[in-house]
Amino acid sequence: MNVRDRLPSGHGDRALIAGVVCILVGALFALTPLRVQLPSAFYVFVEVGILFVIYGMLVLGLDLQYGHTGLVNFGHVVFFAVGAYATAMLSAQDSFAGIALAYPWPLGLVAGVIAAAILGAAVSLTSIRLRGDFLAIVTLATAEIFHSLFVNFEDIFGGNVGILGVPRPIAAVVSDGDTRLAATLLVLGGITLLTLAAVTRLTDAPYGRVLRAIRADELVTRSVGKSTITYKTQSFVYGAALAGLAGGLFALYNGAVAPGFFTIQVTVTVWIGMLLGGAANHRAVLAGLAIIMGLRLISRFALDVTPVSSDVFASMRLIVVGLILVAVIRYRPAGIWGDPQELGVDQ
């Protein structure tokens, strides 16, 4: 039996300290003449690592919604995209197409978080009172609607090209490529660790107990005096805001946003990562995401040594990922590190 008696003390603060340290070291690289040199074989790892820590914020938010509160969000990418677009449009210096307002980037980032949170609030307002499956459909539909808005409203969102000329704060202060990559990974990784610390604090506190109670039985939770609508809305909005933060940071790292970065593939990846690792366990969902993204990375190398075309290889990769998922669901339905009793699945 696995019992986590969540005492609201200590636990989760390691992530807080590690996060602060990462950001400070990253800042050290960025602001001093200190330089790092990465072996060139390392680049791809660092680049995927940066994407991983950004997606890490997505999966932590999704897990707050689904793992802890039981809210099914099949359109998580839309909050990521809205955060990224809002940040990009506000802070871009000049874009090929679409709006570029050239405000300072911190303003853009804050606006990105707020925009995603507002969209989250709007979505939950329409469907959180309804049965769970409605939320799933509404989120999926919202993601599709926004995707086509981004593609079709060229004057606003830049169409398929997207918004270019987004400031890159770290690149602006570090000219050296290797150091820039390392600093970016450290700063963004640090922010993900801070996110981990924050969600851990939330879910370890009595706040998390109410969320898990809603996941188990909403009526019982109401009958012991908890306003479940408020908690469900909050949980959904917090998850959306985290995705918005991830989006804003992505825009500021990448220097551009385009619809191609925000496909349903993103939602699928974070969902698979969460289920693979084990929902309702913050570190497990991050580990699950690392596995799925790691597989993708390894397969890149494998492509060089396999005698098949890249098309065939891409299909094979999908088959392998699918098989792994089937195996996990068959043998560990609660995920690799998930607790089947807590998630209410039979082994």
Binding site: P8, A205, P206, Y207, V210, T221, V224, G225, G344
Partner: peptide, 21 residues
């Protein structure tokens, strides 16, 4: 019951006036 929660958490949940909520 809140089946996916322990007996302890089932009981603790019902406590009113917890600012930590």
């Amino acid at each position: 019951e809140l089946e996916t929660m322990t007996v302890r958490d089932n009981v603790r949940l019902a406590a009113p006036d917890q600012p930590g909520e």
